[in-house]
Simulated assay, not measured.
Amino acid sequence: MTRRTLALVALVVVALAALVPTVNTYVAQRQQLSELRTQVAQQEAEVEDLRAQVARWEDPSYVAARARERLLFAMPGETQYRLTDTSGRDVPLTEAQQAAEEAKEGEWFSVLWESVEGSSRLTPEDIPDEVGSTDEDVPEQDPADDTDDEDTDQ
């Protein structure tokens, strides 16, 4: 190898050492910029949805419809009827009321745990007797005692 070739190889290695981190930084920044543009586009769409909701709430008929649905308001002169099921409980009229009723009942595991806790507080009086073990079914004397009485009579 000549000195020229060695100098050229050294120059290429130094140039690569200087350019590789710069190119990596450039590519990483381009990816980050692309992600941020996507995020901005999503946020702009969300802002447009929120503006549409605000515009709906500025409409008096929309506000009246929501008040009727959520708060069960009625216009003057109207009669409201409340439906009940066979148990006498109110039938939920809206999805929001149904969701509130389900949330009030609690999660399945909390209901299960309350049942376990409740069963641990039972007293012997709370537990029903087994079939055939009532006081009427049990004789007052033990059958073994009857044979002893017959033996003593003879």
Rank of each mutant, 00 (worst) to 15 (best):
A28Y: 06
A10M: 00
S110E: 09
R3T: 14
V27W: 14
E117T: 05
D153Q: 07
P76I: 03
G132D: 11
D59Y: 00
D49E: 11
D148G: 13
R121W: 04
T86I: 09
R3M: 09
P139T: 02
T5V: 05
W108T: 09
A18H: 04
L83W: 07
T84N: 02
A99T: 08
S61I: 05
W113F: 06
P92C: 04
L11W: 05
V20C: 05
V131R: 12
Q97V: 00
S87G: 06
A10Y: 01
S34D: 12
D137C: 07
R37F: 05
D85C: 01
L50N: 11
V47F: 02
D85G: 06
D153R: 05
N24L: 15
R37W: 04
L6T: 08
Q98H: 01
R68I: 08
T25Q: 15
G118T: 12
D90A: 15
A55N: 06
L8I: 13
A10K: 10
L19M: 15
G77H: 03
Q31S: 14
L16M: 13
V131F: 14
V138C: 00
L83F: 11
Q29A: 11
R89K: 12
A96V: 00
D59N: 13
F73H: 08
T84Q: 02
E105Y: 06
P139V: 06
L72F: 01
R37D: 02
V12S: 03
G118H: 03
L93K: 07
T147Y: 15
